[in-house]
Amino acid sequence: MTADTPAASRAETAFATAKTLAEALPFIQRYDRETVVIKYGGHAMGDEATAQRFAADVVLLKLVGIHPVVVHGGGPQISAMLNRAGVKSEFVDGLRVTDTATMEIAEMVLSGAVNKQLAHLITQAGREADVRGVGLSGKDARLFTVEKVVRTRKDPESRIEQVVDLGFVGDPKEVDAQLVMTLIKADQDYVPVVAPIGVDPSGATFNINADTAAGALAGALHAKRFLLLTDIEGVKDGNGNLIPEMTIADAQDLIATGVANGGMIPKLETAIAAVEAGVEAVVILDGRTPHAILNELFTDSGSGTLIRS
């Protein structure tokens, strides 16, 4: 809006802005001093404007009294680096098979470039209010201690169940959230930004599915909400229609009947585990949509698919 904008238009815009803020007040009060864990997907992170907008929205959450914690993915960025290095990737049920070479590249990308860039964007967005992003790895202070993931699948010809070795892929067995809690409860306005890397009891480094890592951390923090941002609008039924809300039992049924497949399986499994661990509700929503997290938290309409007990 410029000085040449008619006074009536400026007044209408000002009124609409004030009305939006007033309508958001009950929702702001609902989440005051509550923890909200946000899983930010790698696809959305690839667009700079989208990433900057996301960072600004996270800063806004902090400024209105919410404790946001960001856990990020980086699948597309890892794939791009693997392609450059000539390393071939294979996926099983949405999880990347990770050998030693893949693990080294995954840690370099996730804990390095992706993590620090996202923390920097949050710091830049919050510089006037001194809100600062802090980049962490799940290896820091043993945030994530993992156990090796074991998957099975049927041979297409013999139909015999076979064990699939995913390599250095782990599931969080223990989550020590003390460092994260210290950061979000401090007088300074820190926003933890966590890369999904962990260690097993022997100290070996493991890749963790970012959805799984975020859900485990949300459970450990007893988050009010766990927002799982991805590149689809939410969970679909068998006819391809968006499901706005479901229970844990509904989610389990989608997996059992095969309606949910591929990368949606670990998302739903994560949502189920997070709710069972004490998260009030999980929302799977499209991170590419402008201000998706604000629309979900501060409006009646919400976004995506909400999963609760």
Rank of each mutant, 00 (worst) to 15 (best):
G234R: 09
P156E: 13
G170P: 01
G240H: 11
E147P: 01
P201S: 13
N239W: 09
S202W: 04
G238T: 06
A213Q: 09
R142F: 01
G215Y: 02
L228C: 02
T230H: 04
R153A: 15
G133L: 09
D211T: 01
K139V: 12
K185D: 15
T212P: 00
D140V: 06
L227F: 00
T212E: 04
V134D: 11
F168T: 00
E233P: 09
G167I: 07
A218K: 10
L179S: 13
S137K: 11
D200K: 01
N239K: 15
F206E: 02
R132F: 02
F144T: 01
L136P: 06
I197L: 06
R142S: 05
G167H: 07
S137L: 07
D165P: 00
I197A: 08
K224T: 02
A186D: 13
I208V: 13
V131S: 13
A220F: 10
Q178H: 07
T230V: 05
R153S: 15
N241H: 14
G167P: 05
K154R: 08
F168I: 00
Q188M: 07
R153F: 04
S202G: 11
T152A: 05
E174K: 04
V149I: 05
N209Y: 05
D237Y: 13
V131K: 15
G138T: 03
A186L: 07
V134E: 06
Y190P: 06
L183H: 06
V134Y: 06
D165E: 07
F226R: 10
R142L: 13
P156T: 01
A204L: 10
D130R: 04
T145F: 06
D165F: 03
